[in-house]
Amino acid sequence: MKSMNISLPESMRTYVEEQVASGGYSTASEYFRELVRTDQKRKDNERLESLLLEGLQSGTATPITDEDWQDIRQAVRKEVAKRQGSI
């Protein structure tokens, strides 16, 4: 794990120290890692919501056919084979 130094105003530093002292976190690093994880999850959720809205706004759904499923399976098999280096 690599280190990263950050500068904080005194009020923020005090706040972080209070969070650690309150027993929620064992170190300031653990507190910051949790903040980053929370931000990553938030951004992932925003991206998912955007994709879902895009799908909903993309037009009327059409039934999927047996031919569509065959095409999907063929594309997946081709991608798997490519990743396994056999093509």
Rank of each mutant, 00 (worst) to 15 (best):
83 R>H: 04
78 K>D: 02
2 K>D: 01
14 T>N: 14
31 Y>R: 03
32 F>I: 15
31 Y>V: 05
34 E>D: 15
24 G>S: 05
40 Q>W: 02
86 S>C: 00
63 P>R: 08
53 L>N: 11
67 E>D: 13
47 R>H: 04
15 Y>P: 00
66 D>R: 06
14 T>D: 15
54 E>C: 00
8 L>V: 15
36 V>W: 00
51 L>H: 07
21 A>F: 04
9 P>D: 09
61 A>W: 03
85 G>K: 06
38 T>S: 09
49 E>C: 05
83 R>P: 00
76 V>Q: 05
82 K>D: 12
70 Q>K: 14
72 I>N: 00
25 Y>C: 06
45 N>P: 06
14 T>Y: 13
25 Y>N: 01
1 M>F: 06
72 I>D: 00
14 T>G: 12
50 S>H: 11
22 S>W: 01
43 K>I: 14
23 G>Y: 01
48 L>I: 10
53 L>T: 06
25 Y>F: 15
86 S>R: 09
53 L>C: 04
51 L>E: 05
21 A>Q: 13
48 L>Y: 07
31 Y>Q: 07
12 M>E: 13
6 I>M: 05
34 E>L: 08
24 G>P: 01
85 G>T: 09
47 R>V: 07
63 P>H: 10
45 N>I: 04
75 A>L: 02
17 E>C: 02
52 L>W: 03
57 Q>S: 01
80 V>L: 10
51 L>W: 01
43 K>Q: 15
6 I>K: 07
59 G>I: 02
70 Q>M: 11
21 A>C: 01
75 A>S: 10
67 E>V: 08
51 L>D: 01
28 A>C: 11
23 G>S: 10
14 T>I: 06
10 E>M: 07
87 I>H: 05
73 R>S: 07
58 S>H: 04
41 K>A: 14
5 N>W: 03
83 R>F: 01
3 S>F: 08
78 K>V: 00
56 L>D: 02
68 D>T: 07
74 Q>E: 13
87 I>D: 01
61 A>Q: 14
83 R>E: 13
61 A>L: 10
12 M>Y: 09
77 R>N: 12
66 D>Y: 04
56 L>I: 04
74 Q>G: 00
62 T>G: 09
26 S>H: 07
52 L>Q: 11
52 L>N: 08
67 E>C: 14
12 M>C: 08
59 G>N: 00
13 R>T: 00
60 T>I: 06
10 E>V: 06
39 D>I: 09
87 I>E: 03
27 T>K: 07
64 I>T: 12
66 D>N: 14
11 S>Q: 12
38 T>R: 15
13 R>N: 12
51 L>T: 02
79 E>S: 04
39 D>M: 09
5 N>M: 03
38 T>L: 05
17 E>I: 03
47 R>S: 06
24 G>N: 09
64 I>Q: 12
23 G>C: 07
